[in-house]
């Protein structure tokens, strides 16, 4: 078989498209986690975004409005998580898992009338690349700038590292975290809508099929740094696309191994960067997943 039959540009386009939902969802979750909140409901928010975006795009015949609706729906579901964990102080891990189940079920319910319907075609810039691809990269840049260079970003990180100190300095810990949670939900919703409006374009129940969990893994893989999230998403998306294309070429690559590779790499990276070092060296926000109770 002939490797030259692989068009590198087409391959690159597929890779970028495949990584885009992951970049959106993981970038949102990164901001949430940097504020000290662990939201395991990414999968649920993605699928809600997928169906809300699909439904709105079909109703208005506008993919752009679909994406807006997806962001709103993702943020709304995330705020439900925010209400439960930040105001009612529920356990974040349990609430996040419940959010995923709730999102999958609710999306299936909303999606009943939408199977077999075609969404309005999203504008493609080139090949499989649509506007969400460059926007995703812009988002990564913006998140990096926000966290590393801006004062609000510094405050958000402070809340994530030590919420008691941030509270003592007079920062509204709960409000900041709710804002981060809503942002994370909106991003996850947009990632989901990219699946249902551009990548597959169709609505099928459970169509995220674990992308939300991969996004969560990427955040850890990236040790909470935006640039590495992009790299991680390319790696995850790239390995998938590459192995599918190599197979189409007729190169018998162990498909099970290739499917496993990104997860193995995540474990490897975790082992390498955490070997003999503290949690701080890993880059995890110190207050990640801890309950903040101002009255306590």
């Amino acid at each position: 078989m002939d490797l030259a039959a692989l068009d590198p540009l087409l391959l690159l386009a597929s890779l970028l498209a495949a990584a885009t939902p992951l970049i959106w969802a993981a970038m949102g979750e990164l901001v949430v986690e940097r504020s000290g909140v662990l939201n395991l409901g990414v999968e649920g928010m993605m699928i809600i975004g997928a169906i809300a975006g699909f439904a709105a795009a079909v109703a208005t015949a506008s993919p752009a409005l679909g994406f807006l609706a997806a962001a709103a729906a993702g943020a709304a579901l995330a705020l439900l998580f925010g209400l439960l964990t930040q105001i009612l102080l529920a356990n974040q891990v349990a609430t996040g898992l419940a959010l995923t189940m709730f999102g999958l079920g609710l999306a299936a319910l909303i999606g009943q009338p939408y199977s077999g319907i075609k969404p309005p075609p999203a504008t493609r810039l080139a090949g499989q690349i649509d506007v969400m691809v460059p926007l995703g990269l812009a988002l990564a840049g913006a998140v990096w700038w926000f966290l590393a260079r801006s004062r609000p970003g510094l405050i958000l990180r402070a809340v994530g590292e030590n919420h008691d100190a941030a509270h003592a300095l007079g920062y509204p810990v709960v409000a900041i975290r709710l804002a981060a949670i809503a942002f994370g939900g909106a991003c996850a919703g947009l990632g989901g809508a990219h699946l249902s409006l551009v990548r597959v374009p169709q609505w099928t129940e459970g169509m995220t099929a674990g992308a939300g969990w991969i996004a969560l893994a990427i955040v850890v893989f990236a040790s909470w740094r935006p640039a590495r999230v992009v790299l991680g998403a390319w790696l995850f998306g790239g390995v998938t696309i590459l192995q599918l294309n190599l197979q189409a070429l007729g190169l018998g690559i162990g498909s099970a191994w290739m499917s496993m590779a990104p997860y193995l790499m995540t474990i490897l990276v975790l082992v390498l960067i955490s070997a003999g070092r503290s949690r701080a060296a890993l880059g995890a926000p110190a207050c990640l997943g801890r309950v903040f109770d101002a009255s306590g």
Partner: peptide
């Protein structure tokens, strides 16, 4: 996995 099935179809 609709996304992966779609990617395979594209490939």
């Amino acid at each position: 996995d609709p996304a992966k099935e779609a990617d395979a179809a594209n490939a």
